[in-house]
Amino acid sequence: MDPHGTFGALSYDVGHLLGTGVLVLSFLLLYQRRMGAVIHTYAAQAVVLAAAALWQAIVQDSWHLLVTAIIALGAKGIAIPLALNAIVRRLNIHRSIENAMGIYTTMALGALLVALSIMVVLPTTLQAQALTREDLALALSVVLLGLLMMISRRTALTQVIGFMSLENGLILAAVGVAGMPLVVELSVAVLVMVAAVVFGVFFFRIREQFDSLDVTHLDRVGGLQR
């Protein structure tokens, strides 16, 4: 077995630590009350993800993970947070986070989801390396927490951040598995960039129409009267 992928090796420990860091930042995202804090936490998650990718690039000795790390740091750690901050300033929505679920409920659900993903991933991947298994469990947890964030918030901006945090989970899964081609990560990254642009336009349109980013206003536009 690959000595890097086993418990106790330095490569494993650091990789595990960074993956767990991404997960912990997902939890932090769940209970942020201010828009600015949400964006900063998201940026921090992207930076930790970039660090995880960098570490894997060093350990696996593959240059394309380096590209992934640079994209994660540049796009998600710096560019997108800056753009989001600009939107928040222009729309003046610093405080307008409205949780649909209580903080404690959300946190409890998040803990349950982490337990669930561990119970799903660990038994199904018995043949894989320990690092891959742990990494997949962490990544699935991050994906599920991103989804949870999308449904536990009311405003469009936080839902988009939930979506991008979900995407961070996908990248985390991709970097943990040795031999994942660069094309996958690049295409995911491009997808997120496009999504960010689309969502940005979308925010301004919603704001123009309803003077708020609360997506419950969209219900009226559902097409049919209820």
Partner: peptide
């Protein structure tokens, strides 16, 4: 068919879980 954004996401999320 006429669920709002959050409800649709919740249904998908619940099914996934």
């Amino acid at each position: 068919q006429l669920l709002n954004v959050r409800a649709t996401l919740s249904v998908m999320f619940a099914v996934l879980v």
